[in-house]
Design a protein around this nucleic acid. Structure first.
Lengths: 248, 248
DNA sequence: GCACTTAATTGATTTTAATCAAGGAACTGC
DNA sequence: GCAGTTCCTTGATTAAAATCAATTAAGTGC
């Protein structure tokens, strides 16, 4: 008998954003920090808000890349289709993160598919409007370089993980990563605050749902995690960290 | 009895670059195209040339990232150390490509190790000098964004490959990729123009030298490739391509 | 030309993980 | 509250690939 989900109230956020939330979220973007509030208000006017329901696609890989999106509320997953009809989950986005067409080049297509995992509110801007903002934002080159370098590093870490770790290690890495990014205290328990099936965990970890289930069952037996349907709590992150750095 | 290498004369290039080669190579960089020749000459003066011998490290992962490098001549491999003491080969560079500290942020460390595969000539520029050039190069933001987006895409392709393909498919992908980038006609034969051991191929493909040997042995038997010590010729690239897209 | 080193090959065995299947339990909608 | 659906668990079997080992052959340096 598996414990019931602690992820209550996950999907109950409104579909729209207040002005305060808009300014708060947009002000968090790395290329908009340090911008005067008046200017941010002006920029904010270019963003259109739109809500999406769980499982709804925000955009699909290969379609015309027309907008840059910012996640105002909820959780989103980015995925691509690999070889052999395998779905590869590239990452989970939390509020404040941007996705979609970041290079503001019209003519490109979206490089991945974005799907809402919960009730979601997005803010988006067209390529042209974004380009205009870029042209008058000081230090945009430097900030965007930093962002892209960080993303390239994250992707390279993924290559290292997939290229040198066992399934157990990759799962440990994925759980630690998710906890670091999305973990929070709920009712005195630290939980990864996003509903994810074991199939989704499997496609983040280059393995199968059955393998994820086997390893997580063992981690539960060892008291390292607590988990149930679509949720995970890390009880002993240090143990998982140790799995990644076995003694020589 | 394995056929002898067609990669003759690989390591005989001079260690230094003529002015013509400098201007030619630097003019190829995506953020220096369209620049007037006089300006390019001025920029060129900031670059220091340095030669490296096969197996010599140009820089190492974790050391202070002080310079941006451009490969003027020869071949270089970029690698990182993954978990379980595994070396992961991230890519092979050819003349005209840049590597090292691209974000020109002092204080960062190099994200990977660069090692000369052949006799190599590099041109490099310090963070400060590069920053000064960036500040007065029109459209740098846009060009650098395009470059970084392309690199992020390549890394994501690698994640897809590692996350969804078998060893045979990954090897086929790697051989096709290398051929596309480094293949050329030599004595009427199309060869991948870089000396690579099967161990190096293995660390590009997330497998072991023995597995690479087994699959390449089979590819030779099928007449798909020709290979020997440190070299590969693709005879039937179409066959390898088919391996990546099996019918549903 | 030969000794030595490095790289590649192939066989046998073990390990890891996928695949297939059956059943159980949480969640949802009526 | 219950039927149906979705998600998870566990067992058995198969397949893929790693590991270990021995041998062969190309290349290098003296």
């Amino acid at each position: 008998m598996r414990p019931k989900t602690p992820l209550t109230q996950v999907g109950t956020q409104a579909e729209s954003c207040s002005l305060d939330l808009r300014l708060h979220i947009l002000g968090q973007l790395p290329f908009f920090t340090d911008i005067p509030k008046q200017e941010l208000l002006r920029i904010s006017a270019n963003f259109i808000e739109r809500g999406f329901s769980p499982s709804q696609a925000i955009y699909r890989e290969g379609s015309q890349a027309e907008r840059l999106f910012v996640l105002a509320d909820g959780k989103v997953k980015l995925l691509k289709f690999g070889a052999n009809n395998r779905e590869v989950l590239l990452g989970i986005l939390k509020p404040g993160e941007f996705f979609g067409n970041f290079t503001y080049i019209s003519g490109d297509t979206y490089q991945e598919t974005a799907i809402a995992l919960t009730q979601v509110c997005t803010l988006s801007i067209s390529n042209e409007d974004f380009r205009a903002i870029v042209d008058r934002t000081p230090e945009f080159a430097i900030r965007s370089m930093q962002i892209m370098a960080a993303r390239l590093n994250a992707s390279t870490q993924k290559v290292l993980q997939l290229g040198s770790m066992s399934v157990e290690q990759r799962l440990a890495f994925t759980l630690l990563d998710l906890d670091k990014k999305l973990g929070l205290e709920r009712a005195g328990v630290r939980v990864i605050d996003v509903p994810l099936t074991q199939e989704e965990l499997a496609s983040m970890t280059a393995t199968t749902p059955e393998s994820v289930s086997r390893w997580m069952s063992q981690m539960r037996k060892l008291g390292v995690i607590k988990s149930g349907r679509k949720w995970v709590s890390l009880l002993k992150p240090g143990y998982l960290q140790e799995l990644l750095n076995p003694p020589a």
